[in-house]
Amino acid sequence: MPVEAGARYGKTYMEDRKLIVSPSPHIYGAQSTSRLMLDVAIALLPALAVSIWVFGIDALLVTVVSVGSCVLFEYLIQRFLLRGPLTVNNWSAIVTGMLLAFNLPSSIPLWIVVIGALVAIGVGKMTFGGLGKNPFNPALVGRVFLLLSFPVAMTTFPVVADAATGATPLSAMKGALASGMTVPEAMAMFSYDDLVIGFKSGSFGEVSAVALLLGFAWLLYRRVITWRIPVYVLGTVILFTGILWAVDPQQYMSPVFHVLTGGVLLGAIFMATDYVTSPMTGRGMLIYGMGIGVITVLIRIWGSYPEGMSFAILIMNAFVPLIDKYVKPRRFGAVKVKKAKA
């Protein structure tokens, strides 16, 4: 009979003990999916606050309806169509709802918002199997669907404060240039203070550069995202428009104007950085971010739409699987083993 250590206690130490056994590691970090999504929602709050200040209670109403319908549609689809486990409590539908709302005019009829939410969640997300499986940013799928289906409602913005028109700075600029004005003449329409703080027309979540940058700071502080994608997107936009501006400032807007108007900041910080639809490696993020920047500027300057951020992100979303397939991380010790010298 084998003698076992500890057996001299009369009974063994393990006799009435049950220990849990699992492979290492035995500890886990503090981050969780739902907490990350909650942090994104928190990071969007400054922008929501400014938009309520600028556009009034309408902005809040659109947000509430959008978030409410996104959550409801996700619940209904999971409960009755997919019949899988319910994951609606992980905050991701709330983030999608907020982002969709932020990409809409505050004056949009609420029933259109509900349709947008259905397309975003139903088509953009759940069709592919839910969280983590969708190739395209769901909020942008919803927004682009609405833009193509309801072009008038989607591009009619309420008049802000003392502005003369409800046109966004980008479309006003595009119109002015088309009518033969030069950029410096057209710039008289805008004050940079208003552009930075948020007193401008547009989809209501995109108006305040300050609020969006505050949200960016929160995301970095909480380590939700890294600096990479926002910096790559904004850097590309600044570089590209900067070159054009340097060549002919009469015809092309300054990079500052480009960054402060339209959806560049909202897109670069909150939409392009969507985990599910962006690349997994640093270099992949560089390609993706530059692609978004280039396509946005191309559409803005030479395209028929005044703004191209949504399309640019969706187009680059489509390239993400390809990027992830071919762009690999830098490997440790990625050299051939040297054979021993004789």
């Binding site: 999916t33 985990y275 599910v276 997994m280 490696t281 440790f332």
Partner: peptide
């Protein structure tokens, strides 16, 4: 929970692999 492709496993891997 489902993978949300957050890329954190890739960025922490000390061997430069793609754990996901």
């Amino acid at each position: 929970q489902p993978c949300i492709r957050c890329a954190k496993c890739v960025s922490v891997c000390p061997m430069g692999l793609e754990p996901y």
